[in-house]
Simulated assay, not measured.
Amino acid sequence: MGKFTPYKHKVQYYETDQMGIVHHSNYIRWFEEARTDLLEQMGIGYDKIEKEGIVSPVLGVEANYLRMVRFGDTVTIETNITEYNGIKLIVEYRVFDEETGMVHCLGVTKHCFLNEKGRPVFLKKKHPRLHKMFLKGIENKKE
Rank of each mutant, 00 (worst) to 15 (best):
R67A: 09
E50D: 06
L59S: 07
L89W: 03
L89E: 02
P57V: 11
V75T: 09
K88S: 12
V75F: 01
R67P: 09
T82K: 02
I54P: 03
R70M: 13
M68S: 15
Y84N: 06
G86P: 12
P57F: 00
I90E: 14
I87M: 14
G86Q: 04
L66C: 09
N85K: 08
I87V: 15
Y65N: 07
R67W: 00
T76W: 00
Y65W: 05
Y65K: 07
G86E: 01
G53V: 07
A63G: 14
L59E: 04
I90H: 10
E62S: 13
M68W: 00
V75C: 08
A63P: 12
V91D: 03
E52C: 12
V58P: 08
V55E: 02
N85Q: 08
K51M: 10
V55F: 05
T79L: 01
S56P: 02
I54Q: 06
G60E: 05
E62N: 13
Y65C: 09
L66Q: 13
K51C: 05
L59R: 12
G53Q: 05
I87P: 09
G72R: 12
N64W: 00
I54S: 07
L59P: 11
I87L: 13
K88G: 10
I81Y: 02
I77W: 05
G60I: 03
P57K: 09
F71M: 13
I81F: 03
Y84K: 05
G86A: 05
I90F: 01
V91N: 01
I49H: 02
I49G: 04
I49A: 03
K88L: 12
L66H: 11
D73N: 15
K51D: 13
R70K: 15
S56K: 04
E78Q: 13
I87H: 05
V58T: 11
K88Y: 09
R67G: 06
V61S: 08
I49T: 08
E52D: 09
G60L: 01
I90G: 09
N80C: 11
P57L: 07
N64G: 10
G53K: 07
I77D: 11
R67V: 02
E83Y: 15
V55P: 00
Y84C: 06
E52M: 12
E78W: 00
L59I: 11
A63N: 09
I54W: 01
I77N: 11
L59A: 06
E78D: 15
P57S: 08
G60V: 06
E83D: 14
K51T: 13
S56C: 10
E78V: 14
G86W: 01
K88E: 08
T74N: 10
V69T: 15
V69M: 11
G53S: 07
N85Y: 03
S56D: 06
V58H: 02
